[in-house]
Every structure is written in C-alpha cells, then in structure tokens.
Design a protein around this nucleic acid. Sequence first.
DNA 1: TTACACTGTTTCACAGATGACACGTTCTGC
DNA 2: GCAGAACGTGTCATCTGTGAAACAGTGTAA
Lengths: 128, 128
Amino acid sequence: MGLKNESLINTVELGRAIKRQREELKLSLRDVADLTDVSASTLSRIENGTGRPDADNIARLTQWLDMPVDRLMKHADESVEPVIYYPHEATPEIVEAHLRADRKLSPETAEALSELFRVAYQQFSKRK
Amino acid sequence: MGLKNESLINTVELGRAIKRQREELKLSLRDVADLTDVSASTLSRIENGTGRPDADNIARLTQWLDMPVDRLMKHADESVEPVIYYPHEATPEIVEAHLRADRKLSPETAEALSELFRVAYQQFSKRK
DNA sequence: TTACACTGTTTCACAGATGACACGTTCTGC
DNA sequence: GCAGAACGTGTCATCTGTGAAACAGTGTAA
C-alpha cells in the first residue's frame, strides 16, 4: 500500500498558496500569523515546505485561504489496486454487511445476494 | 478570534464515524489499522476521541471513509450533520479477498464460494 | 553615522502524538 | 474443562511540530 514516510497531504502546495496569497495582499509573515493564530515561525516553515504541519494549523490556513482542505489531498485512487480488505473471516454476516453498504446495489439486490451467499456458505462449509 | 486551546477539527465526530463504519463492516480495530496504515493503539484513541490526531492519520481515515475532510471542519457557521457514508463495495473481487483470507475455509472451499458469488453477482447486477 | 522598526529565519525547551509492545479480557475450538 | 487466538486498551520511549525569543538583514528617519 501507500508508503509510510511520505505525507498524504501536499504541504508544499499549501505553502506556495499561502505565500502567493500573502504577497498578493502585501502582508508580512507576522500579519498573516496574527490573522490566522499561527505563529510566525511555524508559518515560515510551512511557506518553505519544511516539516509536516499539524491538522489545526492546516485547518487555520486553508480557512484563511478559503480553500477546501481536500484540494491538498494526494488522492491515492491513482493506485492500480482499488480497495481490498484483509479481514479474517468471510461469514455470511460480513458479506451481508458489505452488500448492504454497497451504494451500487439496490436493497433488493443486496438482500438477494446475501440470502444466496448464506445458503451457499452453509452448503460448502458443512462438506468440509 | 478562535480560541487556541480548542481544535478546529471535529475529531470526536471522526472517531464516531470510524467506529460506526468499522462495526458496520464487522471489522476489528486491527483490520482497519492494517487497511489504513494507522496503528491499532492510535486508532483506538481516535475512536474514543482522545487527543488530536495528526494530519496524516486524519487523511488516511477520511480517505478510508471516503469522507471529505472539510466535513470535519468546525466552520464559524455551524452545520448539523450526522451523515452516514456507504463508501464500500461488495464486488466479487472484495468478497474473494475475504474468502481467501478466511483461515476457517479451505482453499478449495474459498475458491468454490468465490466462483459461485461471482456468477451470482453478475446475474443480479445485470437485471438492474 | 546612530537608533529604531521591521522583515524572514533559526534556535531551543517543551508538549504531545506516535507505534511497538504488553496487558487483561473475551471468544473459539478442542 | 483447557489452551490459544483475537479483541480493545494501556504503557512507554521516541520523535516531531510548536511558539517565544533571539537572530541577521534591510530600510528609514533624525
């Protein structure tokens, strides 16, 4: 899956956006610091893209930018592998839970598949 | 403006959403931990709403929930939203992953159930 | 020049989030 | 009954982001 050492959030992009907006408005680092309740030192680090800002500071700054946080997300759906679960069981209950949660299936379809799977599971399980 | 000691991110809501979804899918804490690359202990803390998760873990979990991060933001204008997400699917691939990972089933049984489910899924899906 | 105000950056002690691991409990199979 | 595994949670050493303050430059006015 995703590498652990690389952040899922594009903090470099955030830093650039902040600096652009700040200079556009001809504000100093400390001006923005006061406006956003982020310290000047931290703001400097963020603008330069060093480190990984915590959630609150990211929230304060995107709020000031009026930018949705999700725009900073490195969407991992680039990965070839969609979504795979590795639980420990595949009981009818679990399959049913998945089916009920599946937006693509109508409730009737989910119900029918659940029932079918349940019967099949029992059949196959008992012949062990 | 905003008080500094209170987070701008509704981590309690996040914890509740995670727990709801996890129990809906009947997954264990460690299952979700493996799926999201968030450690089990951290996940436990988040579900219980203690502490302030860092940005990466929030990103990983909202990504797993298929929930926009902005929905966790405490904007000045308050919105009331207990929203339920149903991001997951029950495609044959996913069910097959479950079956193969099921220690209680023999490989042959898992294979047979996978094939059966695959056929049934196609049948039911196409009749829309 | 001198003195002062401002800029962005860096230092540093500290608070707290993290994951590996251990713990106690509850299932589950034998 | 009895192991053994899986469950959620607690412990703890490590790591890192933080803000106050110090810092080095750069005007700017007397």
